[in-house]
Amino acid sequence: MPQHRTRRTLVAIPLAVALFALAPAGSSAHTATPTDAALALLVTRGKAPAAALLAREESGTRFAHAEAGATASVPSRPPSPSAPDDGSTVATRPGTTPGPATAIRREDHFRAGSITKTFLATVVLQLAAEHRLSLSDSVDDHLPGVVRGAGNDGRALTLRALLTHTSGLYDFTRDTEGAFPVTPLQAVRIALTHPPADRGRFAYSNTNYVLLGMVVEQVTGDSYATEVRRRIITPLRLTGTSFPGSRMSLPSPHGRAYATDGSDVTELDPRVAGAAGELVSTLADLDRFYAALLGGELLPPDQRREMLNTRAAQGQYGMGLYPVKLPCGTTVWGHNGRISGSYVRTAATVDGRRVLTFRVNTGGIADPDLEPALLAAEFCPRTP
């Protein structure tokens, strides 16, 4: 779905709200972190009904969440048996507990939107490593005649251009606005009613990854969802991650999802996004996936380097990943996902040893400065 990418060079902003946070599992000390304070701002200033994060660090994991109207801190509810009792933070009204309509639990399933692209790019690069395709192949080599019209020509576009969003293909979701489901071919045909942008320049387009999903199926004989399950979800034991297809409901457990006008959009047809944003996942699974990917578990060294190479996209995007340089000089890698009722962001160090995933249960954050502030709070060194 359409993405409004975090600026690559970020400006730190003051964090005015602090929460009391329980320390990571295995520690008895209580600590408050700048990351937890930044999370609270996603609710107070970002206007999200609720927010949550799961940070994966070498010392353990830390879970925190906040709900609308928060003015006090209380311990979070006990996790389910499938979720370890990590450190957690919750903000709520004094004398109340989080309501089921808004609260986000550690084990909740949610729509991950365009984070789907990182999974799909990983599969394409695995196929390249197996010599079943080449990133220099034209789109027409695998989907002959599919990309034609309004000046678009699949013979002139490579798989590398699709992966790096440098194809110039129009983003079909600018027309559909995620309001109705489409088949992959319908999505491409919508895009092909528009002339291309400048080829070779970075221009984010969901159409690129819809086409890559079609290429994966053409090369393997299986759907992109089947290949992602076989190559990533099953080996990494991502038990909360799935491709719902046309199923409108979320797996249990899950909370509620809200449009920006407050309407409940928990039920949604994933075909509005398809290969560009269909994925359903959990905080823990996304942390695990990016740690494995950047840690070298899923790709050979050559393909991992290719994924992190941003030259084709003028430094703005690799292949299913984009870099963000923080004020302290650290660069983190990851992706965001936006779909009706859900905004998710994962960022990690280049070696995958530290990962943060946060989410809100609505389609966006009212103050765009809050996301970069949260990333800086987590990944930049803290002074005593």
Rank of each mutant, 00 (worst) to 15 (best):
1 M>A: 13
1 M>N: 03
1 M>Y: 07
13 I>H: 15
24 P>V: 13
25 A>I: 08
45 R>F: 03
50 A>I: 11
52 A>E: 01
53 L>S: 02
54 L>H: 02
59 S>F: 03
65 H>G: 01
68 A>R: 12
70 A>P: 01
74 V>H: 10
74 V>G: 01
79 P>N: 06
84 P>K: 11
87 G>Y: 02
89 T>V: 14
93 R>L: 14
104 I>T: 01
108 D>N: 09
112 A>Y: 09
115 I>L: 15
116 T>L: 07
119 F>P: 00
120 L>I: 08
129 A>R: 02
130 E>W: 10
135 L>W: 03
141 D>S: 10
149 G>D: 13
154 G>S: 10
169 L>H: 09
173 T>H: 06
178 G>I: 06
198 D>K: 13
203 A>K: 12
206 N>V: 09
210 V>D: 02
214 M>V: 08
217 E>I: 03
222 D>S: 13
226 T>K: 02
245 G>H: 02
265 V>G: 13
269 D>A: 04
270 P>R: 02
273 A>I: 05
274 G>A: 11
284 A>W: 00
285 D>T: 12
289 F>W: 07
290 Y>M: 13
296 G>M: 08
299 L>Y: 05
305 R>D: 11
306 E>C: 08
306 E>P: 04
345 R>Y: 14
346 T>D: 12
350 V>W: 05
352 G>R: 00
357 T>D: 10
362 T>A: 10
367 D>H: 03
372 P>V: 01
372 P>H: 03
375 L>K: 13
376 A>N: 04
377 A>M: 13
380 C>D: 06
381 P>L: 06
383 T>H: 15
